[in-house]
Design a protein around this nucleic acid. Structure first.
Lengths: 338, 338
DNA sequence: TTCTATCACGGAAACCTTTTCGGTTGGTGA
DNA sequence: TCACCAACCGAAAAGGTTTCCGTGATAGAA
């Protein structure tokens, strides 16, 4: 693999001139620039990003952390769009994406911060709620620019972004009420993550807005998996008074809940209305198709990227906390109460 | 950010000794090693991967290329599992994953090979069929260890991996025939990718095995999207003789086909049987749930990773061409012909 | 006591760029 | 003719590791 000295020798110039020519500086004559570029072409020379990184102290790498639980990480249906649009934006700025392979055998002990610093990542994207709270907090309080999604993480250089979970939940309740439902159950997040909290608060606010009481027997929990939604709905259906609608804090749980409803001899959508949250791809395809509060995943990835780039570019910018609008997607799983 | 000289000074040793101590070499006394480690701990020193990479000429980075078509890249439902299990394996070997952000604005001209060499990636994973054939070929013929998935790409250091598409397609036809179907249509890959070719060959072989004729009016094409499956099925349903079963080269197209069947006033599964290929997450949730030939995505990612690691470790190993078994998943969309 | 083997460590080069500072050249205005 | 300026380029340091080779000390053997 040729290096910059080889090119310099071949072009009868100094390495400094080669560097300047290749990086588009002004003070190199057009003809030497062309000569250099021609030689670079012929030899197939590629400047080493690692050597460059050593001197510029910038790796042009954005590190990405997320846990690899079952149903999370790459496998989580929710994060594909976020990552895709995030990548588009930072790619335009010349950055590449680095996925840390968590929990490698050799250095199980390396913390998030260690790994980020080790690779000299210019910025960090934190997505999905990682297990080790302390580690995440340490990363957020470091000097590395950092944006997290769906975790209310702040630090000197760390901001975060979520959907408008509160407003979305209110909207969900509104829509159910508009359809004549007053007996509205809720399946929330057992682990009480930030989005889950907000959706729950929105649920309560929605009830309150319409003068409906909050009944704890219509409140249950899951962990966003299909089976947990199934089980929670089963419990709700055994309540002294069965609700006429269920608001699920996640689409996948909603799909599990529909299964439970069917097993009770009822028809989801007709006998019991269901509304979800997220708008995963599945939502459109299940039957009845799922009415839900959609998160704007592309906007989330995009805005997170824009914010992170700004954070990296300007050391004095105060880390933002952003919230992205949600919107109601009406399908078949909510019917007017008769 | 402290460097190795700082640690050396604090520990009253040379940088060389610090390096040896941290990398677990034998020729450093236990007590100096402990002293060094304690100081490293206190100072929060992290050896720079970029400086290390410069001298060792290994980046410990695996580059990943895939195109960002609509429905491909991160957004493609098919590649999540592959990437997740791939990452697990290479993570265990100490590698991290680098996603090249394709088509950055500043250097639109940089080829795959350029980008890989620029970052000094130790190995490359190619997944999904990229647009620029020539570029891919160039990468495959370079000296960089490279594994590709679903493209029959070979080179001095490049191998590939696919599912047993041929065998799987034969199995699909077998199953339809077992259920009494003899009028079996096929929706294939318009772009004639390697997997699509093999599935088509398997379809023909399956027909032949059972003495059934190949009829070109029962052959149509799509591009693996739902809408293309919908349209292809529409055309098939207008044939002079309507088939009793359709074998789709991809699940997503199969789902589109089911929609078309419904619009023709028929019930998919009952009136016309459908069998797909891939076993995407959706397949289980649509109704009727989709009988399909499942690809073992975890095994694919795992085996690709193992092969790539071996390719990187040993310069003399001949690049493998691997095929992963598929298996039939029986659900509701195929019914015995009455 | 002297010699040799082993252990623990240090010196310094090498890896490949970028960037600052300064130098040379040729041209221009007075 | 002289001073000055702009344009173009070179020398060298810096960035943080690893690794080869060599050296001093210490222990054991003769």
């Amino acid at each position: 693999m040729a290096n910059i000295y080889d090119i310099a020798r071949l072009a009868n110039v100094s390495p400094a001139t080669v560097s300047r020519a290749l990086n588009g500086y002004a003070d190199v004559s057009p003809k030497t620039r062309q000569r250099i570029q021609k030689i670079v072409e012929e030899v197939g020379y590629r400047p080493s990003a690692v050597a460059r990184g050593l001197v510029t102290k910038r790796s042009m790498l954005i590190g990405v952390f997320f846990v690899d639980h079952v149903n999370t990480g790459f496998r989580h249906p929710f994060f594909q769009d976020i990552l895709a649009s995030f990548k588009d934006v930072i790619g335009r700025e010349g950055y590449d994406l680095l996925f840390f392979s968590t929990n490698t055998a050799n250095d199980k002990s390396m913390s998030y911060q260690s790994r980020a610093e080790h690779r000299r990542a210019d910025g960090i994207l934190l997505v999905a709620a990682p297990r080790y709270e302390a580690e995440v907090a340490a990363l957020a309080s470091s000097r590395i620019p950092c944006m997290s999604i769906d975790m209310d993480l702040i630090g000197p250089r760390a901001g975060y972004l979520t959907s408008d979970n509160y407003g979305g939940a209110i909207r969900a309740v509104d829509f159910l009420v508009q359809n004549g439902h007053t007996d509205i159950a809720f399946i929330g997040d057992k682990n009480n993550g930030k989005p889950g909290q907000d959706r729950f608060m929105g649920y309560r606010k929605g009830l309150q807005d319409h003068g409906l009481p909050f009944r704890s027997e219509w409140m249950d929990y899951g962990d966003y998996t299909e089976s947990s939604g199934y089980e929670a709905a089963n419990r709700l259906l055994s309540a002294s008074q069965v609700p006429s609608a269920i608001f699920c804090a996640g689409d996948v749980m909603a799909i599990g809940a529909m299964e439970a409803i069917r097993e009770h001899g009822l028809t989801p959508g007709r006998d019991i209305s269901i509304i979800g949250f997220d708008d995963v791809v599945l939502a459109r395809h299940v039957s009845p198709s799922l009415t839900t509060i959609a998160q704007n995943r592309n906007a989330m990835g995009e805005q997170a990227a824009i914010a992170l780039v700004e954070l990296m570019r300007n050391p004095n910018v105060v880390p933002p906390t952003l919230t992205i609008e949600t919107n109601l997607v009406i399908r078949e799983s909510v019917k007017p109460r008769i």
